[in-house]
Design a protein around this nucleic acid. Structure first.
Lengths: 157, 157, 157, 157
DNA sequence: AATGAATGAGACTTCATTCAT
DNA sequence: GATGAATGAAGTCTCATTCAT
């Protein structure tokens, strides 16, 4: 595809990044919703979300680089990025946590939105580290590790 | 300050970014070490690290923006960034976790380096969210929230 | 032509200068070789070389300025310039002088490479003077003058 | 000496280059005149000039670089350079050649000013080559070589 | 629709010159 | 007189975007 061709489909670089992000997030969110709608167990829901998150991004390294690196180079984009589908994604996590709290399986002394951010932040760091790592390892198995801590915490029983 | 002035102190753009990062990390790591060296309780150590992390970055919003946004715009820098002081920082967290595991206060069924990344990822997300947030809130108190989950997990008792 | 256009064809300023020089020298050397290959008389060969030298450069004043002035502003370029096609050009002159010495038409008590430099230096000065001169005169006829001295010397018979 | 100090003595870079050039040329011309004023033999005069030329420049490599490289980087300076002491230098050579022609020791079928340029060009090339050469050799002995050709020519007897 | 050469605004950098000390 | 940090104009280069084909 020639340099100029892209301008037949996108207004500019920003539009491309937004489109990639929006499309990806929509697909991501749609798939995520479908995946968890039949599930009632909030812990299992979060498990599926974490797995999907890592699988999706590890399936396409270039896309992951766009997500983890390119999209984060400007406050401008980060603001919009934050305002767009990302908020919706975070909200799915948050609502699942609320469900868990209401169901009595999750502690209630932390604000759900904060939990959601922590959950997301942990997964996000897994992806970033994976991209930057020289060693090639499988990313999806890291979901289980994140979940172990997120659910059970580090403290010994 | 005129365009050329910066070249009296730095070799170029790369040098500026590296210098900011290196100086900040060195200060960060030095202060962190001093803060935890007298402490024997690994949980308390991580608490201090988390607090320092959020306090430092919330103390200078512009610096935080450089850290969370500007420095992450290129894989090139991220690679070097990863190789530099960041690894050392992560290692301080990792070693603290190892101490906790050896002391029997932390579970031992997760690799310490993974725990460290999760810990860092959660804190990092707190900072990024704080920068992008329109609402102005205090960042340091988020440390306690991260720690609650990191230590105790979300599961209800 | 816009600022950036040149970068579609050249890597940078250095590449432009080297390309101009290399292309010019290649053409120069190629044409020179073709011109003298059929000639057996070494004196006639040098005559043709001198004529070509002055004709080529007088045919394009701007190019001559690049050759005589712009390319000589840095030791850096001069070194590379010296190492590149220039050495080959000088060698064509040198070999012709060797031929003349072997044929017994040139004196043998001077090193051919030194003769070549003197020959080149004399021509080069003709070109530089012509460029800097306010008076407009024809450059090519100077070839004959250089040859008179180069072959016969200044001493009266 | 600090950067700024030079501006107490010179108006700017151009002034420095001109001063170096003028001072050098004045010294050069003065010394040259003194050297040849007692000599009546035009050939010997030119010999002394050539020797002085190469000795002076080989005595201070940095100065030689300024002369052969730095001063030639702009048509602007070359013009002024040509107009200044250089013309006088060339004229000394020219007049010596005229003397030789009048004395019957030099051929008269070439214009003296052209002879002077050829003489200068040959010497100049010796200097430039010497500066750029990786091999370190003595420059002054090249004077004799230039003179051999300039007086006797290349043609075998 | 597609192309890709050309564009030019802006980023990065150098270096001769200035000026407060 | 001397200093050298600061200046800023000009040079070099990149890259998102345009437009004639």
């Amino acid at each position: 595809m020639a340099d100029g061709t892209v301008y037949l489909y996108f207004k500019g670089k920003d539009d491309i990044l937004h489109s990639i992000f929006d499309r990806m997030m929509a697909e991501f969110i749609g798939e995520g919703r479908r995946l968890i709608e039949k599930i009632t167990n909030p812990e299992l829901k979060l498990k599926r979300i974490a797995e999907l998150h890592l699988e999706k991004l590890s399936a396409d390294r270039d896309l992951a680089i766009v997500f983890q690196v390119e999209l984060r180079g400007s406050t401008k984009f980060m603001q919009e990025f934050s305002a767009a589908g990302f908020a919706e994604y975070l909200d799915i996590i948050r609502r699942t946590i609320v469900e868990g709290q209401e169901a009595g399986v999750f502690r209630t002394d932390i604000k759900p939105i904060v939990c959601a951010k922590i959950f997301y932040g942990a997964l996000d760091e897994m992806v970033t580290n994976w991209i930057l790592s020289k060693k090639t390892y499988k990313l999806p198995p890291m979901a289980a590790e994140v979940l172990k801590i997120f659910f059970g915490g580090m403290s010994a029983k």
